[in-house]
C-alpha cells in the first residue's frame, strides 16, 4: 500500500514535469529557450517515471525482477548522460546555423551579435 503511494507520487511528479516541458516547448519565443525546456525537463521526468516503474517492479522481489530493475537503472543512467549530450549537439547545430535569436527588446537578431565585443575581437585574432 505504501509502495503504491510512493509509485503514484513519483510518476505523477514525472508527468507534471513532462507537462511543463511540453508547455515550454510550445510557448517559449525562440529556439534557444525551447532547448532549455527540452533539455532539462526531459531528463528528470524520464528518470522519475522510470524510478516509479522500478519500484513497482520490485514489489515481488526475486532474481529476475532484480535483473530487470538493474537494466532499467542502466536506462536511467544512459538517459542522464545522453540527454545533455544530445541537447548540446542540437543547440550547437542551431547556433552554427544562426537560428534567429529572441531578445528582451523584441527584435529578432542574429545570435552572433549578442556576444560581447571582446569575443569577436578574439575570433578575428585567430
Amino acid at each position: 500500500m505504501l509502495l503504491n503511494t510512493v509509485v503514484i507520487i513519483l510518476m505523477c511528479s514525472g508527468l507534471v514535469l513532462f507537462l511543463a516541458t511540453t508547455v515550454g516547448l510550445l510557448r517559449f519565443p525562440d529556439f534557444y529557450s525551447r532547448v532549455h525546456a527540452a533539455g532539462k525537463g526531459d531528463t528528470l521526468s524520464t528518470a522519475l517515471l522510470l524510478a516509479g516503474l522500478i519500484l513497482y517492479m520490485l514489489r515481488d522481489f526475486n532474481g529476475e525482477t532484480l535483473l530487470t530493475a538493474v537494466k532499467l537503472s542502466l536506462i536511467v543512467f544512459f538517459v542522464f548522460i545522453a540527454s545533455p549530450t544530445a541537447t548540446h549537439a542540437i543547440i550547437d547545430a542551431g547556433y552554427e546555423a544562426r537560428v534567429p535569436y529572441w531578445s528582451k527588446t523584441g527584435e529578432k537578431t542574429d545570435a552572433e551579435h549578442s556576444i560581447p565585443d571582446e569575443s569577436v575581437e578574439h575570433r578575428e585574432n585567430r
Binding site: 513532462f18 516541458t21 511540453t22 516547448l25 529556439f31 525551447r34 532547448v35 527540452a38 526531459d42 524520464t46 517515471l49 522510470l50 516503474l53 536506462i75 538517459v79 540527454s83 544530445a86 542540437i90 547545430a93 542551431g94 546555423a97 537560428v99
Partner: peptide, 20 residues
C-alpha cells in the same frame, strides 16, 4: 516548427518518452 532544428528537438523528446 519554424526551423528544421526545432523539429529535431521535438522528435528527440518524443523518442525519449517512447522508451517510457
Amino acid at each position: 516548427g519554424p526551423t528544421a532544428i526545432d523539429r529535431i528537438l521535438g522528435v528527440n523528446i518524443i523518442g525519449i518518452k517512447t522508451v517510457v
